[in-house]
Each structure stands twice: as structure tokens, then as C-alpha cells.
Amino acid sequence: MNTTLIHSPKQETTVSRPDATTLLSVRNLTIEAGSKNSPLRLVDRFSLDMSPGDRVALVGESGSGKSVTARSIMRLDPDFRLTGSIDFDGQDLLKLSEKQMVGIRGHKIGMVFQDPMGALNPLMTIGDQVMEPLRVAGVDRAEAERRAKSVLEELGVANAAVRMKAYPHEFSGGMRQRVVLAMALISDPSLIIADEPTTALDVRVQEQVLTLMDKVSKERGLAVLLITHDLGTVAGFTDRVAVMYSGRKVDEASVDTLFNNPAHPYTQGLLQAVPRIDQTVPRLLTIAGAPPHPGNRPTGCAFNPRCSQAFDLCREQIPELRPAPEGGMVACHLYPAAGKEQ
């Protein structure tokens, strides 16, 4: 086992707003897969705080652990071993029974996945699927139908009463994603976890769905955790961004700080590597190499082999999250702790 992954006694911190009440508080969430003898650590001591109505983006590339983190907040994968705590609405989700979790999933926390066709049952009508969370909770059919119609209308599905009798294949990609969103919203959750909700959609439909999520979350005071690899969609939608790399949160800041004064070299690199529609450069700047496999992380900072500013310490010690000079938190040895820490 890689010795650098051993728990440090220090608690990971997160950007929190002390004045606001907390809706979701993830503390030192560690996710392991594989056998007990040779565990694969997918996520290492992840912490995040969200207040009611907060819109936070969790950004990372494939294999960074962002989707695993999102799924684990809902405890969707029974094979993963989760440690740490996930406080939601006054209770630790990791301590609940599977039965109690059923009352959380789709009720208090709504979930929207990337591929709407995969999230919908092709043999069930749209109406039955949107109603399902309510029916499971024991709401009678007439009432469930009424609420399904109202939430579909809220999401701009015209002629909702008729279309509730249709099947998923009769809907376009954008419409299907509205249905998935309706399923997530019908129980009036206080938090929505959206995992790449617009990635499979065409650019114009992508914009429509984002605008819709924007509208609904503002009107309902709904907190949204948006999981994405696309920094472009993050900029207009969220207040705060957390960046994950190889299973750890490496950067977290307000959306303005993150885009204008990115602290972590990885965040800087990501922002430069994305081609922009408002400017062309003779040559795109790249980050050399590729993200490491979770079973084969380098010693020290996982980003060090790809980092142009890496020095000896980066190859020896995993940097802890510390306050960044421009605000937010960063896990990088370029920003030594203020005071006598370390």
C-alpha cells in the first residue's frame, strides 16, 4: 500500500460561510473499492460544505473521482467502502440503514444523470416515471398525476397532460433531460446532484437545460451540486467551484477567483488548455502527460509529474488544503501555510 495515502490526523477544510446554515457537510470522505487486502482508493479525504440554495460545481477529468464522490453522497454503489461523514439535514448519511437511504434518495436529494435515455425506463410512460417517487412515498395516483403535470409544465414541457402518456423514445434528448429533471424535482428536494447533465446534449439544447436548471433552482431556493468536466458551463451557473484531481480536492474558490486568479497549477493549466470561442491562440497550451490511474498514483502530489512548477517537496509529500492568497483553498506546496503550520 502506498504509504503517502495514510490518513493525516489533520482535518481537511473547506470554504465555508459561517453565517449560513449548512445543508450538506461532507467531511473526510474516503472511498475505496476492490478487495480489503488490496484496496483501491478512489477518493481521499474529500470535504465539502453546501448551504441551502448554494450552487457548487465539482470539476475534474475522467478518473478524478468526481462522479464517484457524487454517487457516494447518495450511497449508490454498495460495493464501495465509505469512511468519514456526510451530514445532510441533521443526520449522517453514512450511518443510515439502506431502508432509511431510500427515503433520502429521490426525495430529499434529487439526482440527474448524464444520459437521460439510460436513466429512463423505456417501457414506462413518462408520467408514471415522473410520479414514481411520490407513489413510492404513498401519495395517491390522482394527486401524484396533478403534481407531475405541474412540475413538467414548470420545466417547459408543453401539453404536459398528453405527453405524460408518451414513452421516452418519443422524446428528444433535451425533452428527456427535462423529464429526468422533473423526476428529481417532484418530491421537492432541497438538493439536486447533477452529474454531467448536459454533456450528451447538443450545444443549443445544453443551453436550454442549463437555463432551466438556473431558473428552477433560483425560484425554489434549491441547492445544486453540478458535476462536470466542462469549465465553460460552470462559469455562468455556479457560485463556487471545487476542482478534483486524482481522487483529491486540490482547489476550491468562488467562480470569479477560480477563473480570474486560479491558484492550483492544474486549474491554471485546465483553463489555458480549453479552446475559447472569443479568442484564438497560435497554439494551445497543454498539460503534458495524462492523469494517473488510482492504483498507480505518484508519491507526493499526484499532479507533480505533469506540473511545470514542481519541486522536491512536491515529489515527497501530499500537500494539504490551505487558504489560498486570493481566497478559497488550495492543496499545493507553492502556497506554504501562513504562520508556523508544518
Partner: peptide
Amino acid sequence: AVPNPNPTIARQRA
């Protein structure tokens, strides 16, 4: 519809 990675512009457009 192309998302703009500038928070100020993106928010304005949203």
C-alpha cells in the same frame, strides 16, 4: 449557445 468561460460575461448572458 457556446458557454463562455468568463464568469462575468457568462452570468450576464445567463
